[in-house]
Amino acid sequence: MPSKKSARKAAKAIKRKIVIKGKASSAKVQSGAKASQAKALFLSKAVPLAVEAKKPRCIVLSGFGLNSELELAHAFSLAGADSKIVHFSDISSGSVKLEDFEIFAIPGGWSFGDDIAGGRVLANKLKNTFKSQFDSFVSSGKPILGVCNGFQTLVKLGALPNLSGAFSQESTLTFNKSGRFEDRWVYLKPQKSACKYFEGVEFINCPVRHGEGQFVPRDPAILAQLQKQGLLALKYAGEGLKESPGYPANPNGSPLDIAGICDKSGKILGLMPHPECSVRRITFPHFTSGISHEANSIRFFRNIVKVGTGYL
């Protein structure tokens, strides 16, 4: 693991004023509002996007019970994207178009209360409303990230791992082996995979908080293919990045300690843990002992942003 010193240094490097870009449409609402951060994030009307030089635009989905959009948008902004939180219904109503963005991110949350199964109803809703926009986004090769509930949604959409290319569901995320929701910090070890978002990222230290995170392939052949084709992008690891750490370092009992997977293009990534919650030094559980690894998480987001930049 990197030394405390280098982590601190990296933290210093990113210590600068954070402003989340993306202007709201209504000038009236914007005027005089000191609270522009919350405003820009909560408003998501049809928007002529403020184009800044060389900044890819990242759309962070919200609504219907999703709840981690603020911190995910913040992480992308920190990594150099122009983040915009957009309500699901603004895409389905057509007032915001996916094609105007270079990165698409579905955050964590409890969409539709996790009723029936986590991500299932949101996935169906997406299919029934803006599937063709989503398909074009996928085929354009632009980055797509699903975190936690967003990962569940991508899996249930069939967008991950999508070995067959037919967007049929090949795996699922189901109840943790413990039968409990759990909140704890974990270590994640990027694997050799098709996914390029982990270049230079030795590990990520971030929280998990889910009840349905156990990865289940349809059959052993799927798992074998995932391994063979290098789609197992991210695994849980123990302290010191120990492999096969067992519970609780692998909090949900996923086989092969799978924490995240990608599709064959490596551009669509889904993961259960929350790297967006580990981009600030002071949110690390041991920062009071001088230990934090925010530079790694930021690097991960920067890598996504870098790929997104290629589509400007």
């Binding site: 981690s68 911190e71 409990r180 929701f181 909140d183 929350h274 981009v279 600030r280």
Partner: peptide, 11 residues
């Protein structure tokens, strides 16, 4: 452990 104390990224 069964309570989410990390959501909103401010903990």
């Amino acid at each position: 452990r069964q309570y989410d104390h990390e959501v909103q990224g401010s903990s």
